[in-house]
């Protein structure tokens, strides 16, 4: 019989199980996430048109990237719109969602009803959200123009349609953040609030000095979700006008180049790679923060 090596010793079967638990998910991740991602990066250096074997594709170096940034007019507006999207989600929608969560946490009467009402849009797909708001924004039959008598073309006019889309998107995002944050607030130890109260702190101070710091893990999750959702924003703009005419986003540019009849796979992959790099920047910030927390 083997010598007892302490409570941490693993039996042979344990080792196999642990091994499988590591290897199988790793293979899945490599196969389903890394391989397509790296494939996409590689394709971005070719001129593949999606027809015929991939071996026909010609390696053309960084020409796709040069073209994207220099002669493709929708690119820079798309970057700008993505950043505006991020800023609005981060500065308006997310704080507002948090605010609603704090309000609802105070056991108002009918809090369940409010929760459901605010959370409802999250259940709807963004495509459906786009359609619902179409009824409100439509130039000739929409609610806003019927009530105010204006003739603004909310979805068609490039001066307004980004903001109109942001309102629709925020409507959904607020509910999402509210739910996440509410769940976090419920988990805060009540004795902390009581202690703060005993020390004579008012509501405001209690929230910002005690509750908010305790909620750090949730804050990070909310932050990451906000960033990721903003950068990959796509569905809503696609439903409204295929991401053209004032609603260009990186996600819609990738789709219109790769998926449609155009099949500029190499070119679209280059935009996708730029999007990947941009997202990685934020993800790297997040990971760095997590690492620092752990030390």
């Amino acid at each position: 019989m083997a010598k007892y090596k302490g409570i941490n010793q693993l039996s042979g079967l344990d080792r196999v199980v642990v091994g499988l638990m590591v290897v199988v998910p790793t293979l899945l991740v490599v196969w389903l996430v890394w391989a397509p991602a790296i494939g996409s990066v590689l394709l971005s250096f070719t001129n593949w048109d999606g027809v015929g074997p991939i071996s026909d594709a010609k390696f053309i170096g960084i020409q796709n990237y040069r073209d994207v940034v220099s002669i493709y007019p929708p690119f820079w507006p798309a970057v700008q719109h993505n950043l505006i999207w991020l800023a609005v989600m981060f500065l308006v929608a997310t704080p507002f969602g948090m605010f609603l969560a704090v309000l609802l946490d105070r056991e108002l009467r009918g809090t369940r009803v409010y929760q459901t009402a605010i959370y409802l849009p999250v259940v709807l797909s963004l495509a459906l959200v786009g359609f619902i708001w179409q009824l409100i924004y439509s130039r000739d039959q929409g609610l806003i123009n019927q009530v105010t008598g204006s003739t603004i073309d909310w979805y068609g006019d490039p001066r307004y349609n980004l903001w109109a889309a942001l309102v629709a998107s925020s409507w959904r995002h607020v509910g999402y953040v509210m739910l996440l944050y509410l769940a976090g607030l419920k988990g805060v130890d009540p004795s902390l609030r009581e202690a703060a109260k005993v020390d004579g702190a008012n509501e405001r101070t209690t929230f910002f000095k005690v509750v908010f710091p305790v909620m750090a893990p949730i804050n990070i999750i909310v932050l990451v979700i906000t960033v990721i959702e903003s950068l990959r924003a796509f569905d809503l703009a696609w439903v409204i006008n295929k991401g053209r005419n004032g609603l260009e986003l990186l996600g819609t540019l990738v789709t219109s180049n790769v998926v449609g009849e155009a099949s500029r796979i190499g070119f679209g992959s280059a935009i996708a790679t730029i999007m990947l790099v941009l997202s990685s920047f934020f993800v790297a910030l997040y990971i760095r923060y997590i690492m620092r927390e752990q030390q």
């Binding site: 048109d49 005419n245 009849e261 155009a262 070119f267």
Partner: peptide, 11 residues
């Protein structure tokens, strides 16, 4: 079609 849809429509 790539020229028509990704260049001419936005242009």
């Amino acid at each position: 079609p790539d020229f028509a849809s990704t260049v001419m429509i936005p242009a």
